[in-house]
Simulated scan of single mutants.
Amino acid sequence: MKGLFKSKPRTPADIVRQTRELLIFAERNGNIREDKRLEKMAELSKLIRELKSILYGNSESEPVPEACTQLTQEFFRGDTLRLLITCLPKLTLETRKDATQVVANLQRQQVQSRLIASDYLEAHKDLLDILILGYENADMALHYGAMLRECIRHQSIARYVLDSDHMKKFFDYIQLPNFDIASDASATFKELLTRHKSTVAEFLTKNYEWFFAEYNLKLLESTNYITRRQAVKLLGDMLLDRSNSAVMTRYVSSKDNLRILMNLLRESSKNIQLEAFHVFKLFAANQNKPPEIISILLANRNKLLRFFSDFKMDKEDEQFEADKAQVVKEIVALGHLDRQ
C-alpha cells in the first residue's frame, strides 16, 4: 500500500515555479525567524542546483531535451530571470555560481527553433543595465559579467549595450584596481566589439570620434602594461576585420593615431611591439596616405628602417616576415617621393 502514497515526481516546470516562489520570498525577506529564513534559502540553493543539473546533466546522465524545453518555457513565462538577477547578492557564493551557469545555459536553449531568452531580454532591457553596473560591486562583478557575456550572444542585446551610455563606462571598468574584475570587463568589452560584425561596424562608424578618443587616451596610452597590450591587440582585431574597412581607412588617416602606434612600437615589451606592428602595417600599406602621414613617415624613415632591420620574432614566421618586407618596401618607396 505504501507505493500508493508516494509523492508525484516534480516536473522541471514545478522546480522553476518553486524556485520563483522562494526568490520572491528572498526579495521581500519580511519579518521571519532567522532559522526559518535559513531553511528557505537552503531550499532555494537546492532548487537552483537542480535546475543546473537538468540543463547540464550530471555524471550519470546527459540533459534530456524535453526537460530542458519545459524548464526554459516556464523560466521565461514568469519573471524568474529578473528575480534571479536581483536576488543574486542574497545567495551564497556556490549558489551564485550555479545561478550564473543556469542563466548562461538558458541563453542557448531553443524552444520551437527560437531563442526565447532573446525575446525576453528584448522586452526587459533594463536587466542589462543591472548586469553592466554589476562591475561596480566587487562581490557581484564576476557573476554579473559572466551572465552579461552570455546575454550579448544575442545580436539585438549586444546592439542595446553598444548604443547605451554604459558603453563609456567600460573604459573605466577595464582599469579597475581589482585585476580579476578588470580582466572580466575587458573580456566583455572585447566580446561586444568583435562578435556581431555588422552591428560593431555600424557602432564604430556612428561613434567614431568619442570612441577612439577614449580608446587612445585611456587604453592605448594607459600607464598599465596589461591594459596597453590588450588594447593594441583588440585594435588590430577590429581594424583588420573586413566589416570595419571604412573605420580602418579613417583610423589610419590620422597623424595622432600614427604617433601613438609608433610609440607602441618603441615599447620594451616584444608582445606590445608585435601587436603594434600589426596595426602600423595598415598605415604603411594605405595607398591613399594623407600628406601629414607621409610627412611623419618620411621624417622617421631612417629610424623605422633601422628598427625593422632588427625587429624579429623569437620563432620563424613566414607571414610576419612577408608583412615586414612589405612595410619596409612601402617606407623605402617614400624616399622616391621625397626626391621628386
Rank of each mutant, 00 (worst) to 15 (best):
K281W: 07
A187K: 11
F211I: 09
E292F: 10
S118F: 08
S156N: 05
F320E: 07
H143C: 01
K2R: 03
V327H: 02
Q109F: 06
D126K: 11
S183I: 04
A99F: 02
H154F: 14
S245D: 12
E136N: 10
Y208Q: 07
L128R: 04
D126C: 12
T80D: 05
I24Q: 06
E267F: 10
K255V: 15
V247P: 00
P89R: 08
D129Q: 11
L305I: 10
N288M: 15
D237W: 04
L84G: 01
Y120S: 01
S45K: 01
T249N: 14
L38H: 11
K312G: 09
K233I: 09
S61R: 15
A231Y: 09
A146W: 00
Q70R: 06
A185Y: 09
D98C: 08
K97L: 11
A182K: 04
D98P: 04
L264T: 08
P177N: 09
K233N: 13
K125Y: 15
Q109S: 12
L128P: 08
K8C: 10
S183F: 13
P177H: 03
P9M: 07
L176I: 03
M1E: 09
K324P: 06
N105L: 07
K36N: 07
T194M: 05
F189E: 00
L148M: 05
P63T: 03
E136I: 01
V252D: 05
K52V: 04
L4K: 10
R153A: 03
Y173P: 02
Q273W: 13
L234A: 02
L131H: 10
L83W: 00
M140Q: 03
M140G: 00
A231I: 10
K315S: 12
P291I: 12
Y215E: 00
S222C: 09
S309T: 14
N286P: 05
K190T: 03
Q175V: 11
S156H: 00
S164I: 04
L204E: 01
L84T: 02
S7I: 12
E214Q: 15
F212R: 07
T11Q: 11
L220V: 04
R37W: 03
R242I: 13
V327K: 05
N224D: 15
K168C: 02
A246R: 09
V64D: 12
R228D: 08
S243L: 07
A182L: 08
V279S: 00
R250E: 11
T205W: 00
L148T: 01
L83I: 01
L264V: 08
D172T: 10
D338E: 15
H166A: 08
E318H: 12
R10G: 13
K312L: 11
L217M: 15
Q319Y: 09
L297F: 06
S118L: 09
R10Q: 14
L115W: 14
A26C: 13
L131T: 10
F277A: 01
